[in-house]
Design a protein around this nucleic acid. Structure first.
Lengths: 221, 221
DNA sequence: ATAATAATTTAGGCATACCTAATATTATTG
DNA sequence: CAATAATATTAGGTATGCCTAAATTATTAT
């Protein structure tokens, strides 16, 4: 294993490669690597038994690949908890530095960190932390942009992307916050929210990357 | 910078490359790398202005090289403090995992970790932790094997080497312990010590890698 | 002082993981 | 159902950092 291969497995996992086929383009985009290099690496990972890969069809993780990816995500999210809780990191900083730490922390370190943190269930951005056996809690959330005006819910998860995190943190959005939609701008205009009592405006694009409880059963869509 | 180059700089530093010329063989031995590869890498580091290197003569760190090496040592030792103090690591485990963490922790992480740990002056093995400006506290200690029978001192530092650390920890040797030499075996035989009251036998080889206060002014030798 | 030994360098190779350019396959759409 | 666009692959090349074997330089000992 190398940090590079680990990144491939982790991204395939995040792109849904546990159940579905993931296209090379998706991987190339998210890892910022030339498509040709992706093909090459996928062949290696396939030979190592970490993914099922069929040329031109895409790839999906094997059991072994899932295990490794889940361990990485576990380390990443535990480090985020540590950095935020004990070192005073911001959302985006924690994500950045956890990206580095996840690749070097051996299992014993991850396990001891987990204990030190008192076995947190979620990372600071609201993602479930996989258990050491790879199991992960699934939740059915919807994106904030789908909440109708007048409706109410709670912030549960945000996508981990530097610019978004800085934007959301500046707005005062936190995991667990109560939100009520006051108004929705037309043509993907901004949403006006009541966030823990205070009024806040959020862009439509950002609202698409913030997840909330699905009280009204909108379901996946 | 890469982890590989960092290891070269760090080891040159530890081998005295701040003041003296360090031979390629020393580096090859400690890094477990073929001498030919060492020559090659030293040329690169020299071209990058991190060491002064003259073929067949050896190498010495430049100001820039010293700065990087000190930062690495700083990170290494701070991580050791964290791993021991908060995650329940043993001496040797802490050294091993700090070896990995030091290469990925960016400056902001090191600084915040330092603060979290309340600015420790020494690592758990008794090595001074360089300050963020690269400055380091020097102390004049002597090795335990040079303490005469009947004489008394305090444990201040131990060499960071896995097998030694496990051996010393099993004996109950800790930084700050009081030691009195009861008897010294002939022909580099074991020393009998009184360690914080308890009697303990330590091999001569190990005693050479344990540093104590120099109350009787034996000086460097 | 010269022979033997030790340390170092040069030369030629290998694996990883990336790249660009050219080619091939699959999907879309008029 | 072609033609075009999008996606993926192959071929050939680069840089890093390691290796072994052979040649060179330095040190030590007779």
């Amino acid at each position: 294993m190398t940090p590079n291969k680990e990144d491939y497995l982790k991204e395939i996992y995040k792109l849904g490669g546990v159940e579905n086929m993931v296209s090379n383009k998706q991987i190339a985009d998210v890892l910022q690597i030339a498509p040709a290099s992706v093909s090459e690496m996928l062949n290696k990972l396939s030979r190592e038994g970490l993914i099922e890969y069929e040329a031109y069809k895409g790839s999906r993780l094997t059991e072994e690949g899932i295990k490794i990816a889940a361990q990485l995500l576990r380390g990443h999210r535990l480090w985020e908890v540590f950095l935020l809780r004990h070192l005073g990191y911001s959302w985006s900083e924690a994500h950045e530095d956890a990206e580095l730490l996840e690749h070097v922390a051996p299992p014993r370190l991850t396990e001891r960190l987990d204990k030190f943190l008192n076995f947190p269930a979620y990372c600071p951005h609201g993602n479930a932390i996989p258990h050491s056996n790879g199991q992960i809690t699934k939740s059915s959330l919807i994106t904030l942009n789908r909440l109708k005006a007048g409706k109410h819910s709670y912030i549960r998860r945000v996508i981990e992307e530097k610019e978004l995190l800085d934007y959301l943190e500046a707005l005062g959005i936190k995991i667990g916050c109560s939100v009520k939609v006051i108004s929705v701008g037309a043509y993907e205009g901004p949403l006006m929210l009541e966030l823990d009592g205070k009024q806040v405006q959020i862009s439509y694009k950002a609202a698409c990357q913030v997840y909330i409880d699905d009280f009204d059963g909108y379901g996946t869509d």
